[in-house]
Design a protein around this nucleic acid. Structure first.
Length: 489
RNA sequence: GGUCGGUUUGCCGAGUGGCUAGGCGCUGGUCUGCAAAACCAGUUACAGCGGUUCGAAUCCGCUACCGACCUCCA
């Protein structure tokens, strides 16, 4: 059961049984962000998706090396590789050193990831730190005859590559169609063919991010870094390579071509792609100007939401949809997730304090098997969560003494929830304390004692007044049969 | 225009050829000084048309609509 993980391979467009090249070792590479702006919901989805994969593989006792890169150079602005480097452009706009831009957004990205409880990868390589390795790969590809130099720039020869290998097999594209669809830009191109892509670009005089090479002072093409760094840290046989669906073409297609041209091997066994987050059915993206950054969602606010949300709510929201489906963002949908998560968290708290009986009707193993099945089926977290909610009903019913549970099943149940909620889904408990409000817990409790006394002498006016006052201060009161609960809202 | 994908109950969102995912919302109930919260229960949908089948939301075909990629994007 444990080793029957199936994952959807973009290459075959089918779910396949996961078998690493060399068990128990697993090499996992995921395309990280280009750090020229704040991380948005799309970055969160990518990170959470592969974080859960990383966690689950680890849970299955694989020895995982997880590499997630930071793109901090060489990402061109637009078509035909004639554009401007994204980071450079941002640096000019903000009057900063390019590496200052990189550092600033990389720090912010790391902070957001931590807030989302995304584990740091085993290695987080940066493109700028692997210029020499990238040049070596360019050389190799030139040596094998699949790249050519023009005016100090080096381009990948897609047509020549396609004579021997199939270019477009990952994204299902045909060379003829690509050729037919390519926009012919005005002016002379250094490329032999419009679909060729840059491996090395000569920098013009205004370009500050540049490195010496045997071809020119320049910088590496975008697709090159992932081939280079995955090769360096995971070798020629990589088990899983992932990223957002929008990277499928051309980015990942080009990577495969580079891998094959450079090493003779495709390199990657399973390609995995997470789908996009949409707003009103439209993809959320930087260029569409409809994206919401994580900072805005967590604390700053955004015109599309009337309030902020706890990062765990975002994480849970993402996990309530399958990673290969689009997920439509709205405040209503987020609020629904927030309530659901709260119910789950409450049940976990109850579970911790549950009493076992000598006999019980609860079968924890049944639940466990359902959970395993869901995860093994291409990381079906929404189905996993639905099973966990079924268990919430069970937990509540035991607490209300409608049904009973024996010690063995209770222990097992605790273990299941700890494993799936905390270890695999990566959901942290809500932390609500007085540190942000400056109100002391003991102060509140003594006020509540006064209210209890008022209640005992049927002084409802006073009791309600205290409740209303505390309410205004952001403290909610929940009267219960035995005593009173309170919490910061 | 090409390629690929989607259309599920008020909303988000799973899913399998027959056995009513789940969350939110809503309705009812329990609890309660009142309220809130919490809990329990109910809430049987699968774009349209045709086909295959004993049986299809699930397979096939057509139509409509939506989207992604084809240019930077997670």
């Amino acid at each position: 059961m444990k080793n029957s993980l199936h994952i959807y391979n973009t290459l075959s467009r089918k779910k396949e049984h996961f078998e690493p090249w060399q068990p128990p070792f697993v090499g996992l590479y995921a395309c990280g962000p280009t750090v020229y702006g704040n991380a948005h919901l799309g970055h969160a989805r990518q990170a959470v998706t592969f974080d859960v994969l990383y966690r689950y593989l680890t849970h299955l006792d694989y020895k995982v090396r997880y590499v997630r890169n930071i793109t901090d150079v060489g990402h061109l602005e637009n078509d035909a590789d004639e554009g401007e480097d994204k980071i450079l452009k941002k640096a000019r706009l903000e009057k900063l050193e390019p590496m200052e831009v990189v550092q600033q957004y990389m720090n912010a990205y790391h902070r957001n990831m931590q807030e989302l409880n995304v584990l740091p990868p085993s290695i987080e390589p940066r493109a700028s730190g692997h210029i020499i390795e990238q040049q070596q790969l360019v050389k190799k590809i030139i040596d094998t005859g699949y790249a050519y130099e023009t005016n100090g720039s080096v381009y990948f020869d897609v047509l020549k590559f396609n004579e021997k290998y199939a270019y477009g097999k990952l994204s299902g594209r045909k060379i003829d169609e690509l050729l037919g669809n390519t926009r012919t830009l005005e002016g002379q191109s250094e490329k032999r063919n419009p679909i060729d892509f840059a491996l090395w670009k000569k920098a013009d005089s205004s370009h500050i991010m540049k490195w010496p090479s045997e071809w020119s002072e320049g910088y590496p093409g975008w697709h090159l870094e992932c081939s280079t760094m995955s090769l360096k840290y995971l070798g020629e046989n990589i088990d899983i390579h992932g990223g957002g669906l929008d990277l499928l073409f051309p980015h990942h297609e080009c990577e495969i071509a580079q891998n094959v041209a450079g090493s003779g091997k495709e390199g990657v066994k399973y390609w995995m792609h997470n789908n996009m987050i949409t707003i009103k059915g439209q993809k959320m993206g930087r260029s569409l100007d409809n994206f919401i950054t994580l900072d805005e969602l967590f604390e700053k606010g955004h015109r599309l939401v009337s309030r902020t949300f706890d990062p765990m709510v975002i994480r849970f929201f993402i996990l309530q949809a399958h990673y290969r489906s689009t997920l439509d963002f709205s405040e209503d949908a987020l609020s629904a997730s927030e309530k659901g998560l709260q119910r789950l968290q409450d049940a976990l708290f109850i579970l911790d304090n549950l009493q076992a009986s000598s006999k019980g009707v609860v079968n924890a193993e049944e639940l466990n098997e359902k959970c395993i099945r869901a995860m093994n089926d291409d990381l079906n977290t929404p189905v996993l969560i639905s099973h966990l909610f079924d268990g919430v009903k069970t937990i509540n019913s035991v607490q209300e003494k409608r049904i009973s549970i024996d010690q063995e099943n209770l222990d097992h149940l605790k273990d299941i929830y700890n494993t799936y909620v905390h270890s695999i889904l990566g959901i942290n408990p809500f932390v609500k304390d007085s540190s942000t409000t400056g109100i002391s817990d003991k102060l509140i409790e003594s006020i509540l004692q006064l209210r209890q006394k008022a209640k005992q002498r049927n002084d409802w006016d006073t009791a309600d007044e205290i409740r209303n006052t505390l309410q205004k201060m952001g403290i909610s009161i929940k009267d219960k049969k035995d005593g009173v609960d309170w919490e910061f809202m």
